[in-house]
Amino acid sequence: MGYSQYDPSMQGRAPWNAGKTVGTKRPLTQKQIWAVRFFLDREGRLRDRALFDLAIDSKLRGCDLVKIKIGDLVAGDEVRTRAIVIQQKTGRPVQFELTNDVRASLLAWLELRGGSLDEHTFPSRVDRSNHMSTRQYARLVDEWVTAIGLRRAEYGTHSLRRTKASMIYKATGNLRAVQILLGHTKIENTVRYLGVDVEDALLLAERTEI
């Protein structure tokens, strides 16, 4: 429910987005990805390295990422090469790949973490039977990007979701493939999410010889 600007109770109250950058968060570059990995490895933060790597590869929203269970990622004594989850927002399944480096960091974390297949991969600090909160995940992302010299106002959890998708789009120009990978129901959502504009379209056209 909205409030009138003349409502006395709202006088002097700062807007929710005061001092915040509102809009699409920037994806990370390859160089920035490796900078974050170097920082986390140097600090010996196995959980955070696994969380960061999984966020990049899975391209999942934060609400889906934190709820992933060990059984979603593991088959026998190995980390899967592909996984599938049901998205909270759409109720639809989405698949994602797990590349070799990501599987290695996940395996290192899971060996340290232990636990059964029906437990969350990244448990809450407060209640080990529950998953990490999306707020905690967002705080971690703020910490990671700040550690490598980026402005946290320009980056967030959606930066990690967009990173690999943006790279795939730039390399291929295949919006339909990116739509599937992001789990979007409409390609228009993918266009908006990636920030595809006229300049992108013209560059793709210029690279196409007929």
Rank of each mutant, 00 (worst) to 15 (best):
D7F: 11
L175P: 01
L204Q: 07
L204G: 06
R92H: 12
S166H: 07
R176P: 02
H131A: 04
R207L: 12
Q136G: 13
E78N: 08
R42H: 10
Q11D: 09
D53G: 06
V74T: 08
D127I: 07
D64L: 04
H158V: 06
G12T: 13
T21E: 13
K89F: 09
K69W: 08
Y155P: 01
L98S: 03
S105Y: 03
H131G: 00
A165F: 03
N130K: 11
N100H: 14
H120I: 03
P93M: 13
G156Q: 12
L204M: 12
G71S: 03
I70A: 09
W144E: 01
M10G: 13
R152I: 07
L175I: 15
R125V: 05
R103G: 03
I210L: 12
R42K: 12
G115I: 05
G156N: 13
Q179D: 05
F96C: 06
V102K: 00
M10E: 11
W34H: 15
K20T: 10
L194W: 03
G71D: 01
V198I: 11
P27T: 06
K164E: 14
W16F: 11
V191T: 11
Y3L: 10
T163L: 04
V79D: 04
S129E: 07
Q179A: 05
D53P: 02
T99C: 07
S116F: 04
K164L: 15
A147Q: 02
L73S: 01
L73Y: 00
G195W: 02
R151F: 08
L194R: 01
T185R: 09
E43Y: 06
T163P: 04
L60P: 02
T99P: 02
Q11R: 11
Y155Q: 05
V126G: 07
L181V: 03
D77R: 08
A18V: 09
R162W: 10
T163S: 10
T121Y: 00
W34K: 15
L175W: 05
R125L: 12
I180M: 12
R92C: 11
E199D: 12
R92E: 13
K59M: 13
T121E: 00
K164V: 08
L150S: 08
A75F: 13
L194K: 02
R162T: 09
R37Y: 05
R128N: 14
D41P: 05
K20S: 11
V66R: 01
G115C: 10
N130A: 13
K69P: 07
L60K: 01
L73K: 00
R80K: 15
R103K: 13
P93N: 13
L107V: 13
R80S: 15
A177Y: 02
W144S: 01
T21G: 09
K31M: 10
Y155D: 02
A205R: 13
D101W: 11
W34P: 00
F39S: 06
N17A: 14
A14F: 09
T163V: 10
G76V: 07
G19A: 09
S58A: 15
D72I: 04
D72G: 08
F52N: 00
D101S: 14
P15E: 12
V126L: 14
I70F: 05
I56Y: 04
L40N: 02
R192W: 04
E43W: 06
V74Y: 05
G149S: 07
G12W: 11
I68C: 08
R161W: 10
S58W: 00
G71L: 01
E143M: 09
T172G: 09
L117V: 07
G173M: 06
V36L: 08
S133V: 02
L46S: 12
A108Y: 03
